[in-house]
């Protein structure tokens, strides 16, 4: 919509010649305006990106390696043949799918509440924004304390309510620990998702609701046929953002479980970090990070294609 209006203005120039000139002038101006951003972003990442790509083609076993045989795609083959890699990939996919799905569903519900006619709505919004603002590391430390097997408040709460008899070791079993990390992550991220979706909700014209209500449509139907289609762009952006973020997840793992127990919470980014820095296997670690990039690109492309129903101005 917005792009269309912008195009009309530029397109309204009288003659093609003049239009091209204006285009060039604008192009030059755009270049200068974008130069600072380009330098600040690509100046920092371009060189490291290619350095890492290069390293991924060599066998580099030390940060100071002088003998670095060229192995071509050998590191990639090594990674793809490693069961540890596939296990961490599986866990990361599980983490990504479950946390993103939960965040989306709960985020939609909370967005609805944020948009509803509440008394003291400002207070509710203020409360909801708190987890979003909480730094990830603090969030991890907080939940680690809550899940603590000896003094944690979750154990205290559940046993005082009579739900559990013995204190549970929430982070002591690989599958359980991964789910607990997901809970911590979802708690922190639902508000972010909710605010994104709220922004989409508020841009739905009220006439649409009113029209649907005049038709005596039920709420589930209004949701399905009015709200959801209008929210598709917001949802697709949230999905892409959260999927990318979840797939790269590192800090909450580092602070909560360090990959344990039995590697149960070792995600692929953490695995790459371990391989590169703890095992000093920089070639393989670099290959791993590029595999992560490829998977993220593929997932994002799939999402965007699936959800690309409405015209999105910028993506």
């Amino acid at each position: 919509m917005t792009v269309a209006s912008a195009k009309q203005t530029t397109g309204s120039s009288p003659t093609p010649v003049k239009r091209r000139k204006r285009f060039d002038r604008q192009g030059r101006m755009a270049f200068w305006l974008l130069l600072p951003a380009g330098v600040a972003v690509f100046g920092v990442i371009i060189y490291p990106m290619f350095r890492t790509l290069l390293v991924s083609l060599f066998q580099v076993n030390s940060a100071l390696a002088t003998v670095t045989p060229f192995v071509g795609l050998g590191n990639y083959e090594h990674v793809l043949a490693s069961p540890d890699f596939w296990a961490s990939m599986g866990r990361t996919l599980y983490f990504t799918l479950v946390s993103t799905a939960l965040e989306l569903v709960l985020g939609l519900a909370v967005a609805g509440l944020l948009n509803a006619k509440l008394k003291a709505r400002w207070l509710f919004r203020t409360i909801v924004v708190i987890p979003w603002a909480l730094p990830t590391i603090v969030n991890a430390a907080m939940w680690k304390g809550i899940f603590n097997a000896q003094y944690g408040s979750l154990n205290a709460l559940l046993s005082q309510l009579g739900i559990i008899k013995d204190y549970q070791v929430w982070l002591g079993d690989p599958t359980l620990a991964l789910n607990m990390v997901i809970i911590a992550d979802v708690w922190k991220t639902v508000p972010l998702v909710a605010f994104f979706l709220l922004a989409g909700l508020t841009s739905i014209p009220t006439e649409l609701y009113e029209a649907a209500q005049l038709d005596r449509a039920s709420w589930p139907r209004i949701f399905r046929s009015v709200v959801l289609p209008m929210l598709v762009p917001s949802i697709s952006i949230v999905l892409v953002l959260r999927t990318v973020e979840a797939f790269k997840v590192f800090d909450i793992i580092y602070a909560m479980t360090r990959g344990g127990p039995i590697n149960g919470t070792e995600t692929v980014a953490y695995y790459a970090y371990q391989t590169a820095f703890s095992d000093q296997n920089f070639g393989v670690g670099s290959a791993l990070s590029y595999i992560i990039v490829v998977v993220i690109l593929a997932l994002s492309a799939v999402y965007l294609r699936l959800l690309r129903r409405s015209d999105m101005s910028l993506l």
Partner: peptide
């Protein structure tokens, strides 16, 4: 979409 680990050492 680039993970930060891909850039650390350089």
């Amino acid at each position: 979409m680039l993970p930060q680990i891909a850039l650390l050492i350089p």
